[in-house]
Amino acid sequence: MSQTVKTEQDQPIGKTFSFMFVFKRYPIIPALCLLPVIICGIFGPLFYPHDPTMMNLGSALKPPAFLPGGEFSYFLGTDHMGRDLLSRLIEGARISLLISVFGVLLSGLIGCSLGMLAGYMGGKADEVIMRVVDAQMSIPAILLTILLAAALGVGVTTIIVAISVVFWTGYARVIRGETVSLKQREFVVLAKVTGCSKARILIRHIFPNLISTITVLATLQLGRAILIEASITFLGVGLQPPDTAWGLMISEGRMYMATAWWIPTFAGLAIMATVLGSNLMGDWLRDKFDPKLRQL
């Protein structure tokens, strides 16, 4: 009769439940922060409780449902114009997502191409591009965005352009460094020996090896983009009142802080959760892609 001896190794890994294991393996917290924003951003109009821009002065400054005087139909309360805050929060996610995603994509496109060019070509091209990066990095991001927004006029496109102009330097620096180190690798030298053109080496050999770095950078930049968008909107050079944006909700609710704290607070929490989620997601991706940090 054979008797199975149970050892530690016999236990299937999946059965030994451990919180740390699950959290390291899957990006649960970042997903919890980001998924609602993404869902609201894409499908928002399908489930607004109210029209986010519909004013109803009769029900202005209603507190959230869980406070005395609150109504269930205005779950997070209303602002000074009687607009439903939950609906406005959902609508704000759309704008934030749109601006941050396109801003990050456009800045990534500019930054990565210039970074790869500087790193691979070296010499004069490298000098010029990197000095421009250094010069621009010495100007505070928020100041530069305000200047650009003021110069180009307000609107969604303007903010996207302004964010791209501010952010491309971050990509260019990191991508240049990575490209310089990839350039020395044997497979790139071999590609040259085989007769590959510079364009082919950059596209087929260097770019695929940068994708993980770019993904991590882009995820981290997403949070910063949302912060910048909210900041300049709050300061009054971003989106303007008929639009709905989180930064706008904070700036409008600022005056009512003492009497109706819920107007700026929920928008602020939404910004915080999104930025936190994108930062945590970036960290998680970095740990996953970087073999030196990978443990599981």
Partner: peptide
Amino acid sequence: DILWYRMRVQTIFQDAASSLNPRM
């Protein structure tokens, strides 16, 4: 002619692991 020369002369390096593009 450089392109032609690159077809006629090839090389093999010491470290095969880094001679091959990990993403291909």
